[in-house]
C-alpha cells in the first residue's frame, strides 16, 4: 500500500490500490522486478549512463591532478577528491534516470498498469544504486592507481565499501526524488545539480569524514562508527520521505 493518499476515497486509484486481494493488482515484488529488469536491460543493450559516468569520473581525477598540481593525495584531501568525483559523476546518472521514460512514454505505460506506484521508486532507486556501484568498481581503483598516495590494505577497502554502500543508498534515494522532479521541468539538467548537491551535503560530510582515516598517510585506521550512523540516519530519513512523496511526482 502506498504513502498517504489524498485523492477522494471513492477514486479509482484507491479502489485499485486497496484491493491487495484483487486478482488484477500486480504484486509489488513482481512490479519492482519487471521494472528493474527493464532498467538494467536497457542499460545493458544500449549502455548510456554507466559508461558516461565512469568516463567522467576518470576524467575528473585527471582534472584534479592538474588543478591540485600534485601527483599523490592522501587523508582528507584524498577523501575529498574521491567524493567530489563520485558525487559529480552521480549527477550525470540522476539527470538521465527518468529521461527515457519521460520521452518514450514509459511513465504513461507504468501509470496505466494496475500496481502500486512505489514500485517505480524502488526500481529506479535500485537501478541508480546498481549504476553507482558499477561506476565505483571503475572509479575507486582508478583513483587508487592514479592519485592515491598510501596503499590501503584489504580491510580498509572493505570498510570503504561499507561507506560507499551507505552513501550510494542516500544518493540513489535523493537522486530518484530529484530526477523525477527535474524531468518534468524545462531546465532539467540545470536543476538536478542545483537541487541534489545541497541535499547531499550531509552524505558528503559523513562519507568524507568517514573515509579520511582509511586513506591516511600513516596507515589506514578504522572508520569512526558515528559517520556510518550519520549516513544510515540520512538514508532512513530520505527513504521515508521518498516513500511518502514519490506518488505525487508521477501522477499524470
Amino acid at each position: 500500500m502506498s504513502a498517504p493518499t489524498s485523492t477522494p476515497p471513492a477514486g479509482g486509484r484507491d479502489a485499485v490500490a486497496e484491493g491487495a486481494a484483487s486478482p488484477r493488482l500486480v504484486p509489488m515484488r513482481a512490479a519492482v522486478r519487471a521494472l528493474l529488469r527493464k532498467e538494467l536491460g536497457l542499460e545493458l543493450r544500449a549502455p548510456q549512463a554507466v559508461p558516461a559516468m565512469a568516463l567522467f569520473s576518470v576524467t575528473t581525477l585527471v582534472v584534479f591532478h592538474f588543478a591540485l598540481q600534485r601527483g599523490e593525495v592522501a587523508g582528507d584531501l584524498g577523501a575529498g577528491v574521491l567524493w567530489v568525483t563520485l558525487l559529480f559523476a552521480a549527477m550525470l546518472g540522476i539527470s538521465r534516470l527518468f529521461v527515457a521514460d519521460h520521452e518514450e512514454g514509459g511513465l504513461d505505460g507504468f501509470l496505466l498498469a494496475p500496481t502500486d506506484r512505489t514500485a517505480m521508486l524502488v526500481a529506479k532507486a535500485l537501478a541508480l544504486f546498481a549504476f553507482l556501484a558499477v561506476v565505483e568498481v571503475v572509479a575507486v581503483p582508478a583513483f587508487a592507481l592514479l592519485l592515491l598516495g598510501p596503499a590501503p590494505d584489504a580491510g580498509a577497502y572493505a570498510q570503504l565499501a561499507a561507506l560507499l554502500a551507505l552513501a550510494d543508498a542516500g544518493i540513489a534515494l535523493v537522486g530518484t526524488l530529484v530526477g523525477a522532479m527535474a524531468v518534468q521541468t524545462r531546465a532539467r539538467d540545470l536543476l538536478v545539480p542545483l537541487m541534489a548537491l545541497p541535499l547531499l551535503i550531509p552524505v558528503v560530510i559523513g562519507a568524507a569524514k568517514g573515509s579520511t582515516p582509511l586513506l591516511s598517510d600513516a596507515g589506514a585506521r578504522a572508520v569512526e562508527v558515528r559517520w556510518l550512523l550519520v549516513l544510515g540516519l540520512y538514508d532512513l530519513v530520505f527513504g521515508l520521505l521518498a516513500y511518502a512523496l514519490f506518488d505525487y511526482l508521477i501522477e499524470d
Binding site: L177, M181, T185, L199, L241, L245, Y248, L249, E251
Partner: peptide
C-alpha cells in the same frame, strides 16, 4: 504539486 514535494523534502 512539485513545489510542495520540494518544500516538504527541504
Amino acid at each position: 504539486r512539485y513545489a510542495s514535494v520540494f518544500a516538504i523534502t527541504a
